[in-house]
């Protein structure tokens, strides 16, 4: 069996593996010890009752059955999904549009790029304060003035009404985060070879066709990244909701509650870490499914 060829092949394979592992090790060891470990523990916690101090008590799937009978959790799940379905594609389109716009040779490009990134880095308090001024539920708010005087419709109560609160949160987060994803797209655009555009131009392609047949396909790895990161961050939305829709004593009510807010509430208000972990595990599974679907899509273009 052990012909010299297979043995050397196997040896080479092993060498290859070792080299690869050596690349991964510095990051992976830190990651595994300090992040992956606690996460695995958190998933074990989902099947226990634990307050962070007293001994853990295994309760099987009780945490999960309780979750799905708790209407704060089911509302959170529903709101998070609705939020993500709208926010992911809209942010992606805005970010790509901005990146293409700001990748052109325009004057004061640095200025415009920085400005676009700004709401992402500015203090959330400031950004939310400005937003609340524009989208104030009173008739004096700028958007309501616009609605009444230009569109002749009734003023909206925005974040103060159960009908429009999610809309307000979605608009806000697109505005705040599109600059972030624009940066990723900008970096991605730099990887596209000028030759491809030249070749397309020779074939008589117009601006739209260049975009359709060169830019978009070349940006696939970036889009994969952006889609996954966006999906994950949308499912993890938390502080925006708290800032915009926190009511009495900061409690977010069922119309706007999201998953991570629920996790926070269970973990640090009620100290039910088991139940919090169970909610996080549900979130994890949803995101994992979405990621796996994306992953399947990615295989098609992998350049081997």
């Amino acid at each position: 069996m052990n012909t010299p060829i297979t043995r050397s092949a196997r040896k080479r394979k092993m060498r290859q593996n070792l080299v690869a592992y050596s690349f991964i090790a510095p990051n992976f060891i830190g990651f595994a010890v300090f992040t992956l470990g606690p996460i695995i523990l958190a998933f074990i916690m989902a099947f226990t009752e634990w307050d962070g101090n007293n001994p853990m008590k295994f309760v099987g799937v009780d945490n999960f059955t309780n979750l799905f009978t708790n209407d704060r959790f089911t509302s959170a799940l529903k709101n998070t999904i609705v939020y993500s379905i709208f926010t992911v594609p809209l942010t992606l389109i805005m970010a790509l549009g901005l990146a293409i716009l700001l990748n052109q040779k325009i004057k004061a490009r640095t200025f415009f790029r920085t400005v676009t990134f700004f709401p992402y880095v500015a203090s959330l308090v400031a950004v939310a304060a400005v937003w609340n001024m524009l989208f104030s539920p009173s008739k004096g708010g700028l958007m309501n003035q616009l609605l009444m005087n230009v569109f002749h419709t009734d003023p909206l109560k925005w974040a103060a009404s159960p009908k429009t609160v999610m809309l307000t949160i979605i608009l806000f987060s697109i505005w705040k985060n599109m600059g972030y994803y624009m940066v990723i797209y900008l970096a991605g655009l730099q990887g596209i070879s000028e030759d491809l555009y030249e070749a397309a131009a020779l074939d008589g392609a117009g601006a739209f066709q260049k975009f359709r047949y060169v830019t978009l396909p070349q940006l696939k790895p970036t889009t994969f990244f952006v889609t996954i990161m966006l999906t994950i961050s949308c499912f993890k939305i938390y502080d925006i909701v708290y800032m915009l829709a926190g009511g009495s004593n900061g409690v977010v009510n069922k119309n706007a509650i999201v998953l991570v807010y629920y996790v926070y509430e269970e973990a640090f208000r009620n100290w039910k870490l088991g139940s919090a972990s169970a909610a996080a595990l549900v979130l994890f599974v949803i995101v994992l499914i979405v990621t796996l679907i994306q992953f399947r899509g990615e295989k098609n273009y992998a350049n081997d």
Partner: peptide, 23 residues
Amino acid sequence: LFLAYISTIAVPWQVYMVPQFMF
């Protein structure tokens, strides 16, 4: 391994913060 990397991003820190801190 790669999938493990990505999927951990989806776990909210709030949920493993306490055991991580204790560790």
